[in-house]
Amino acid sequence: MTYKLILNGKTLKGETTTEAVDAATAEKVFKQYANDNGVDGEWTYDDATKTFTVTE
């Protein structure tokens, strides 16, 4: 399945996607991606759209 991440960081905004077997796996990938890019904030997940959002 394809999962999407929306980044609403103070210095980085954008979107990315990943292929993962489940939401938990996608979340690990996205949290590492956000961490690597210096984005740390509040996370939400919408199962209907398979979209994670992180907002600083």
Rank of each mutant, 00 (worst) to 15 (best):
M1W: 14
M1N: 14
M1S: 14
M1T: 14
M1P: 07
T2I: 15
T2E: 10
T2Q: 10
T2N: 07
T2G: 05
T2C: 12
T2L: 14
T2W: 13
Y3I: 01
Y3P: 00
Y3D: 00
Y3R: 01
Y3M: 02
K4Q: 05
K4Y: 15
K4N: 06
K4C: 06
K4A: 05
K4I: 13
L5V: 04
L5W: 02
L5G: 01
L5D: 00
L5Q: 00
I6K: 06
I6D: 02
L7N: 02
L7W: 11
L7G: 02
L7C: 07
L7K: 01
N8T: 08
N8F: 12
N8R: 12
N8A: 08
G9C: 10
G9A: 08
G9D: 03
G9N: 04
K10G: 07
K10S: 11
K10H: 11
K10Y: 11
K10C: 12
K10V: 13
K10P: 09
T11C: 13
T11Y: 13
T11I: 12
T11R: 09
T11W: 14
T11L: 12
L12K: 11
L12E: 06
K13H: 11
K13N: 08
G14M: 13
G14C: 13
G14A: 14
G14E: 09
G14T: 14
G14N: 09
G14Q: 12
E15Q: 12
E15Y: 14
E15G: 06
E15N: 07
E15D: 06
E15M: 13
T16D: 03
T16L: 14
T16W: 15
T16Y: 15
T17V: 10
T17E: 09
T17D: 05
T18W: 07
T18D: 03
T18H: 06
T18P: 01
T18N: 03
E19R: 11
E19D: 09
E19V: 15
E19F: 15
E19K: 13
A20D: 03
A20S: 06
A20Q: 07
V21Y: 11
V21Q: 10
V21T: 13
D22E: 04
D22L: 04
D22Y: 04
D22R: 03
D22K: 03
A23H: 11
A23I: 10
A23Q: 10
A23R: 12
A23S: 12
A24P: 09
A24C: 10
A24S: 11
A24K: 11
A24D: 10
A24N: 08
T25G: 08
T25M: 15
T25H: 13
T25N: 08
T25L: 07
A26Y: 00
A26I: 02
A26V: 02
A26D: 00
E27F: 15
E27Y: 15
E27A: 12
E27D: 04
E27G: 07
E27R: 09
E27M: 15
K28Q: 12
K28H: 09
K28C: 07
K28Y: 11
K28P: 03
V29T: 10
F30R: 00
F30C: 02
F30P: 00
F30T: 00
F30S: 00
K31G: 03
K31D: 02
K31S: 04
K31V: 06
K31F: 06
K31A: 05
K31E: 04
Q32W: 06
Q32S: 08
Q32C: 06
Q32K: 15
Q32I: 09
Q32F: 05
Y33H: 05
Y33P: 00
Y33G: 01
A34H: 01
A34Q: 02
A34E: 01
N35I: 15
N35D: 08
N35E: 12
N35C: 10
N35T: 13
D36T: 08
D36P: 01
D36Q: 13
D36H: 09
D36N: 11
N37H: 15
N37R: 15
G38P: 02
G38N: 10
G38S: 07
G38H: 09
G38M: 07
G38Q: 08
G38D: 08
G38K: 07
G38W: 05
V39F: 14
V39P: 02
V39L: 10
V39N: 03
V39S: 03
V39G: 03
V39D: 02
D40N: 13
D40A: 13
D40V: 14
D40E: 13
D40K: 14
G41D: 02
G41M: 03
G41S: 02
G41T: 02
E42I: 14
E42T: 13
W43L: 03
W43R: 00
W43V: 02
W43S: 01
W43I: 03
W43T: 01
W43A: 01
T44G: 07
T44N: 10
T44Y: 10
Y45S: 01
Y45F: 08
Y45D: 00
Y45N: 01
Y45E: 01
Y45V: 02
Y45C: 01
D46F: 04
D46M: 04
D46I: 05
D47H: 09
D47R: 08
D47I: 10
D47E: 15
A48H: 10
A48F: 12
A48L: 14
A48N: 12
A48Y: 11
A48M: 12
T49S: 09
T49K: 07
T49N: 07
T49V: 06
T49G: 05
K50V: 03
K50C: 06
K50T: 04
K50D: 02
K50L: 13
K50N: 09
T51R: 03
T51N: 02
T51P: 00
T51H: 03
T51F: 03
F52M: 02
F52I: 01
F52P: 00
F52Y: 06
T53Q: 06
T53L: 06
T53A: 05
T53G: 03
T53N: 04
V54T: 03
V54H: 01
V54A: 03
V54R: 01
T55I: 08
T55M: 06
T55A: 05
T55S: 08
T55L: 06
E56D: 08
E56T: 07
